[in-house]
Nucleic acid binder design. Structure first.
Length: 211
DNA sequence: CTCCCGATAT
DNA sequence: ATATCAGGAG
């Protein structure tokens, strides 16, 4: 895989989706952290529906600590995995209060030490809440399209991230994920990719096999 | 590797 | 009915 191919992919997607922005609604780092945790195996549409009410009720880490686990579970129920998510959000909130003056840490080491937070979530928060870049967030869309486009042959998200970091210019690490998520939801879908409408069609090794 | 898990598209 | 959705932990 030549670096030029990746640059062309990024150029075409930027042109197709100018001003692409993160779809998860948030107004501060804590909201983005919670929103990203809730987005695991759940559509961002539903996450935004849930957080619209959630963020009016829970404004600080202390608010998540104060409420009972059962009540928080009910408040995030429809996002799925609600027991794990509620437990992690409560536990993580206690850590923020105890160790970080109730604030969300702005570095990879501290973020990934939080329960329910691994590199994907940390990369999203770092890039979109703090303007920092320490890696490339590899979610289901980035994984699927990186494989289809031939940017990696690995299926492990950690290895995919390493492969992508070697190919994508660091100045594009943040927007790369946003572009692929946007494109993956509209065109390069998991079940029925719309290759006929894809701006990457001519340089995608998988285009023919998807008609 | 399995488990967590509701909601929606196909 | 089944696959999939801004994953992560054990």
């Amino acid at each position: 895989m030549a670096d030029e191919t990746v640059n062309e992919i990024i150029r075409l997607l930027k042109k197709e989706y100018p001003g692409v922005r993160i779809a998860l609604h948030h107004s501060n780092p804590l909201e983005l952290l919670v929103s990203t945790i809730l987005s695991a195996r759940c559509t961002d549409k539903r996450v935004n529906e849930v957080t619209e009410k959630l963020f009016k009720k829970y404004r600080t880490a202390q608010d998540y600590v104060n409420v009972s686990r059962e009540e928080l579970e009910k408040d995030i129920y429809s996002t799925g995995f609600y027991k794990n998510k509620a437990k992690n959000i409560k536990k993580l909130s206690a850590i923020l209060i105890e160790n970080f003056n109730s604030q969300v840490p702005d570095n990879m080491h501290d973020l990934t030490a939080l329960p329910g937070v691994a590199r994907k979530t940390a990369n999203i928060v770092l890039s979109n809440a703090f303007g920092k870049v320490e890696g490339i967030a590899v979610d289901t869309h980035v994984k699927r399209q990186s494989l289809r486009l031939g940017l990696t042959v690995n299926k492990n998200p950690g290895k995919i991230e390493t492969d992508l970091m070697a190919l994508v210019p660091k100045s594009d690490w943040g927007i790369f994920t946003l572009l692929l998520i946007h494109h993956g939801r509209r065109v390069c879908k998991s079940r029925k990719p719309m290759c006929g409408e894809c701006v990457l069609n001519s340089l995608c090794p998988s285009a023919f096999s998807f008609g």
